[in-house]
Design a protein around this nucleic acid. Structure first.
Length: 934
RNA sequence: GGGGAAGUGUCGGAAUUGGCAGACGAGCAUGACUUAGGAUCAUGUGCCGCAAGGCGUGGGGGUUCAAAUCCCCCCUUCCCCA
């Protein structure tokens, strides 16, 4: 009896041997083509959990596969080691962030080693080590020198609990990403990277194979919108500015502007506030400052605002437009001011109704529908009959009022004529929707007033109030119309249509409005086409200790001076004091703060903020190319050899942060001449997430599951395979270990299959060919699946192959040589997935060390080809029988021969066809045969 | 509200992209074996039906000789953005 499979023994044995012999040491002087397989490095938060393994184990399989395929594979590992977690631990437990981080790394490294990956540990990169962050700082200076880093005062997201600034991306639903505290706004002097300079290039993903959904997310995040910047005239005694500019994507609606809204923190607000409104305005500004962005933009919340008491002039029609502030306008977006067109924007419409601001329609409906309500007692008898005669639809109320719906200009015109003659003096009727008219009748005659401007609104409302006491409390015509539910669907729309009520531009058709209006405004000199982005510059300052210090010095004489390369790194002092004050602990460290100016050698102060950790992770893949290089961030030759990355795997949660920053970084370096390519990685793949108890695993939630016990219990190869076998990699899913023993059982079977002696008995040529065919089909399937990162079906194929080989062993019907060959292929196919088992079996079957240095098996398309095919036969689309025929025949048989052929081969089919007339025969060679019968 | 992904047995999932639905594994059932194990092996296992057969891929409609797959409407879940 052969030795049993005892995972822990062979795992230890081979991991030691691989390390001793330097099996996975990577160098650049190889005749093989290079392959850079990068996995997002982990953040040093503590233990690795199975979520990390789910990311790393399949990547390792892919890298091993590429290695066997003959590539010189770089598949490195490192640690993203700066960041808030370490510092928070320091505050809570009094342990220095460096100590805490390095302890974590030690444990994580141990766990990673137990996974048996191909990582070349000589290339490990740790971002919090001075020899790494020296170069992080160096890149900062480079960006500064190329005008891609600048300092500005800006309202920033501030987490009161973490006491630090957060990037927009770190604010989730108005809460801090890390501690779920509500984020507030604060003005601070900050460092920014000019990522917006690259917005257009980042929006395109030229020449790279990235998942469509990531590209879409990045495009949405960048949010490029083309529109028009329009100037509104400002004539105010105490304000120097003579205009307020707004950005809009709907310049065609400009003549419908009935008010303007500024962000509460807009610098003009104090000056534009009239004294009697000062208290109200200040209170509102104060309140919105305390609110989170998400509260301000929430659609559930009713929009509110305050009138400043000042006006701008709409240069299109000369109308005086009141200026309001409202918190749904953000200073960061566009110009911090928007023109409000309540007739064609839902939010503005609600705002106008709430505050009694006029609503003027300036874009025609495209469906040509108009509505009118003829109130009971306002019409002479006979209108009903006229409407019926004209085929106009209406609903009569119990007291004789008519709800009229008009379709098209003809009906509207005819209706106007009918109304003109039917309307009783002292009454009015309005037509809304595809026409905006008020018809008034008095003893003197009939007056038709177009509802087309703010003045018209005033005039019409006054006349209505005279006639009807019920509407005397209405502030606008629209408020009056809104009182009638029948009209609701007519009162605002956001479609593009022909312009109306727009002076010289009236009549411009809907498909030309944007261009025509913008050109016209350009000629008139108060508007121009422009592009606006949602993407903001990347704020990188963090008021924290545990990050790379920003290498800048402030000198009274020379101003802002970067630290020269020979003085880098600016080291973090070891004796920092950790207090949650909101300022970097570095600010209290006098030895750190006080320095001399690199230019004039006079006394100067250091920048005390540190960098966002996304800066550290923006170039770590470059460092892997030459991790010990001292003269620069990387050895240019080695970088040229390895970069760009061939396959980058990691979670989709980095879609708009890390993955956008990395691309920006590379583009910036390219423009500086430091790198030679446009994109950091050619192929990106996002695996899904393993969740536990419906949530992502995290220490704070207490739902962390570590791989360690599974490894001790079942062996690491089983764990690796189980992660792959769970389901499609990109999908992730809830952790459930109920199937893991199945994988272990399978590996047991594999083990026994290979180890136990095989004795041929009756050799059969037929079985031999079949064995060969199955082997080659398996090689083809496994190769294709790893290439496409479909690990679950790859494992299933290997299981099927083992099941098949078990049957062959039972029949003992192939020669020893044929058996050995099949087993050898099986071991090679297993090598990337179960490196330890494969290596041990390789040795036990008398092969030389190491299986991982062997060539990946090739398949022969001819040998893999089926000799016979199973042909399903349908009668009128229903599956009735299957017949097995030679593959050659399947492709040569003619349609005419088929009915007879099928009858001969299948009595069932013959019965079904008995007495039936065949209307049609569908035959897809080797796939399906379908007789369509009467 | 907008954008994206998904919905298949008891469960995880498969289906070469329009051609045998349910591969592979788990679970369950029955049996065999035994140095009684976290075994191992064999057989069965979508639903209804004694059967012939019928029904079945979230629901409803459509295209097609043929739909899990394509089109339209609706429902549910997850992710991203407002």
């Amino acid at each position: 009896m052969a030795a049993k499979y005892i995972p822990n023994e062979i795992e230890k044995k081979w991991q030691e041997k691989w390390a001793e012999t330097g099996l996975y040491r990577v160098s650049e002087d190889s005749p093989r083509p290079k392959y850079y397989a990068l996995t997002m490095f982990p953040y040093t938060s503590g233990d690795l959990h199975i979520g990390h393994w789910y990311v790393m184990a399949p990547s390792d399989v892919q890298a091993r596969f590429k290695r066997m395929q003959g590539y010189n594979v770089l598949h490195p590992m490192g640690f993203d080691a700066f960041g808030l977690n370490a510092e928070n631990a320091a505050i809570r437990q009094g342990i220095h962030p460096y100590t805490w981080t390095m302890q974590n790394i030690e444990n994580m490294r141990r766990q990673l080693k137990s996974m048996g990956a191909v990582y070349d540990w000589d290339r490990e990169v740790i971002t919090c080590q001075p020899d790494y962050y020296k170069w992080t700082q160096w890149f900062f200076v480079k960006l500064y020198e190329h005008d891609l880093a600048y300092r500005a005062k800006a309202p920033v997201n501030w987490c009161p609990s973490c006491q630090t600034v957060l990037a927009n991306e770190q604010v989730i639903d108005g809460l801090c990403e890390r501690c779920d505290t509500a984020v507030i706004h604060r003005d601070l002097e900050q460092w920014f990277f000019r990522i917006t300079k690259y917005a257009d290039e980042l929006k395109e993903h030229v020449g790279i194979d990235w998942p469509e959904r990531i590209k879409i997310m990045q495009r949405n995040w960048i949010g490029r919108s083309t529109g028009t910047e329009i100037s509104f005239a400002l004539d105010h005694p105490v304000v120097d500015e003579k205009e307020i500019r707004v950005f809009t994507t709907r310049p065609d609606t400009t003549s419908g502007v009935t008010f303007m809204v500024l962000a509460p923190e807009h610098p003009l607000v104090p000056k534009l506030t009239v004294p009697e409104r000062k208290a109200e305005v200040e209170a509102y500004v104060e309140r919105s400052r305390r609110q989170t962005e998400i509260e301000r933009l929430s659609t559930e919340k009713e929009k509110d605002g305050v009138f400043l008491g000042s006006y701008v002039i709409n240069r299109l029609n000369g109308e005086k437009v009141p200026i309001w502030i409202a918190d749904y306008v953000l200073l960061r977006y566009g110009t911090g001011a928007v023109m409000a067109v309540p007739a064609h924007d839902e939010r503005d419409f609600a705002f106008a109704l709430k505050y009694g601001l006029p609503v003027i329609h300036v874009i025609d409906r495209t469906d040509g529908i108009a509505k009118s309500f003829a109130m009971a007692g306002t019409m002479r008898p006979g209108l009903k009959q006229s409407l019926e005669a004209a085929n106009i639809t209406f609903i009569e109320t119990s007291n004789g009022g008519l709800y009229v719906t008009l379709h098209g200009d003809d009906q509207i015109d005819r209706y106007i004529e009918m109304v003109k003659s039917s309307l009783l003096p002292g009454s009015w009727v309005e037509i809304v929707g595809s026409r905006w008219l008020f018809i008034f009748a008095s003893e003197e005659g009939v007056t038709v007033l177009p509802f087309d401007s703010i003045d018209a609104d005033r005039l019409i409302l006054a006349k209505c109030k005279e006639l009807e006491p019920n509407v005397r409390n209405r502030r606008t015509v629209m408020e009056m119309l809104w009182g009638l539910e029948f009209y609701h669907d007519m009162l605002f729309h956001t479609e593009y249509g022909t312009m109306i009520h727009s002076g010289p531009l009236t009549g411009t058709p809907g498909d030309q409005t944007i261009n025509t209006v913008t050109e016209w405004m350009e000629q008139q000199g108060f508007g121009h086409a422009t592009v606006s982005y949602r993407l903001r510059d990347w704020l990188i300052s963090r008021q924290r200790y545990w990050g790379a210090p920003i290498p800048m010095v402030y000198c009274d004489k020379c101003g802002i001076v970067p630290v020269p390369e020979e003085d880098l790194p600016v080291l973090l002092p070891e004796d920092a004091e950790f207090r949650p004050t909101g300022e970097s602990p570095l600010a209290y460290n006098e030895q750190f703060v006080n320095t001399t100016c690199p230019q004039c050698s006079g006394p100067a102060k250091r920048e005390t903020d540190t960098m966002d950790t996304f800066m550290c992770s923006s170039w770590y893949f470059l460092r892997y190319c030459s991790p010990h290089y001292e003269k620069a961030a990387f050895d240019p030759e080695k970088m040229k050899y390895w970069m760009p990355v061939d396959l980058y795997t990691g979670g989709a949660e980095h879609a708009v942060m890390h993955l956008l920053y990395v691309r920006f970084f590379i583009k910036a370096l390219r423009d500086m001449g430091i790198v030679h390519f446009d994109e950091p990685c050619n192929r990106l793949y996002n695996q899904g997430h393993i969740i536990a108890e419906q949530r992502k695993m995290s220490k704070s939630r207490g739902n962390v599951i570590t791989p360690d016990e599974y490894v001790i219990d079942l062996g690491v190869d089983t764990v690796r395979v189980y992660f792959m076998f769970l389901g499609p990699w990109e999908q992730g899913g809830e952790w459930d270990d109920s199937g893991i023993s199945g994988v272990r059982r399978w590996l047991n079977r594999v083990w026994n299959l290979v180890i136990e002696e095989y004795t041929p008995r009756v050799e059969s040529d037929g079985v031999r060919t079949e064995l060969q065919r199955t082997t080659h089909q398996t090689i083809r399937k496994v190769t294709g699946d790893i290439e496409r990162l479909r690990f679950n079906t790859m494992i299933a194929a290997l299981m099927e192959f083992t099941n098949y080989l078990t049957k062959i062993r039972e029949s003992s019907s192939v020669s020893q040589a044929d058996w050995n060959e099949a087993i050898e292929k099986l071991m090679l196919l297993l090598a990337p997935s179960t490196p330890h088992v494969a290596e041990e079996l390789w040795e036990q079957t008398g092969h030389y060390y190491s299986i991982h240095s062997q060539d990946w098996p090739q398949w022969d398309e001819e040998l893999a080809k089926e000799e016979e095919v199973t042909l399903p036969i349908q009668i009128s689309g229903k599956m009735r029988d299957k017949i097995t025929i030679p593959a050659v025949l399947a492709s040569t048989i003619t349609k005419a021969e088929l009915p007879q052929f099928a009858r001969e081969r299948s009595t069932r089919i013959a019965e079904y066809l008995e007495g039936k007339k065949i209307k049609d025969i569908i035959y897809v060679p080797g796939k399906i045969l379908n007789f369509v019968v009467e």
